[in-house]
């Protein structure tokens, strides 16, 4: 059964509010528990607007969002409870840190949920162990940490609420390779530990090929494609028309195909490509 169902979601930008967001037109999809969904689309395609509806930060002009079959706006007073079930990590989340210690900053979310101090402490230790934040960091000021560490603390702040669905908007933007690897590992560990559903907005097709089960492609506010990562990346011409692309390694494979080498169309990671090309080489040797 689907944990999240979006039905005919439309958001029109009325121009009266000072804050711009892109429009979303008649978007419908549903997601099952434990799936990792990548959301791709070029800037202005409505990705960010879409995800802000899923935890009720924005209210749809039309359509509805069902969480476990219940409309998230069914009881308006309950919307904060919804936000603890559908976690949202914004782009550059380290800019939201404000407490004087890492501990207190991570505690902000759980505290807002009305949990007891013991429960909050348990959750903080749990999330820190899970994502590799050392215990002695908890008493430090978040502002003394490095950029990559701040990012992890900020993400831990949302994870400590233990949402069933967790959404990330460009979680690795601006990080170096080590920082990126850390954050991606955090996301993987969290989703495995709690069997959580994960949605990730990213421009990086290579990361998407590694972590996403399915891809949701947004184009000009509309849902263009929603299918398995494999099936989406097979449609490279269509993606290019939308200003997107397939992973670089897949582009290399496409180029090889044009040169007359018979390569399958489901190679999206370096591992796959290496395995295939080396086997091709060995096969060639045997034939010779």
């Amino acid at each position: 059964m689907s944990i999240l169902e979006v039905k005919n979601l439309t958001h029109t930008y009325d121009g009266n509010t000072p804050f711009m967001h892109d429009a979303v037109k008649n978007v419908s999809f549903s997601i099952s528990k434990g799936e990792v969904i990548g959301i791709i689309g070029h800037t202005g395609s409505g990705k960010s607007t879409l995800v802000q509806h899923l935890n009720g930060l924005l209210k749809a002009t039309e359509g509805e969002i069902l969480l476990d079959g219940v409309n998230i706006w069914e009881n308006k007073k309950n919307i904060r409870a919804i936000r603890s079930r559908v976690g949202l990590v914004f782009q550059y989340p380290e800019y939201q840190l404000f407490e004087d210690t890492v501990y207190r900053d991570i505690a902000f979310g759980p505290k807002n949920m009305g949990l007891s101090d013991d429960e909050i402490a348990n959750r903080i230790y749990e999330v820190c162990d899970l994502v590799g934040i050392k215990r002695d960091y908890l008493d430090k000021s978040p502002f003394d940490l490095s950029g990559g560490e701040k990012r992890r603390v900020a993400i831990a702040g949302v994870m400590a609420m233990q949402p069933e669905i967790i959404i990330f908007d460009e979680p690795v933007a601006g990080l170096d390779p080590q920082g990126r690897a850390n954050v991606i590992k955090m996301i993987n560990d969290y989703s495995k530990r709690y069997n959580a559903t994960v949605l990730i907005i990213s421009h990086n097709m290579e990361d998407m090929a590694l972590i996403a089960d399915k891809l949701l492609v947004m184009n000009k506010g509309e849902l263009a494609i929603f299918d398995t990562t494999e099936n989406v990346f097979r449609q490279h011409e269509r993606l290019i028309r939308m200003g997107l692309n397939v992973p670089i390694v897949t582009q290399v494979m496409l180029s090889l195909k044009q040169k007359g080498i018979d390569v399958p169309d489901n190679i999206f990671t370096v591992d796959q490509a290496v395995d295939y090309l080396l086997s091709l080489k060995q096969g060639g040797n045997r034939n010779a």
Binding site: R80, S84, F108, G109
Partner: peptide
């Protein structure tokens, strides 16, 4: 203004 809105949304997402 844009930044304020972003931070407000981020804290609301943490249940503020």
């Amino acid at each position: 203004i844009e930044e304020t809105q972003k931070i407000m949304n981020a804290q609301k997402a943490r249940g503020a």
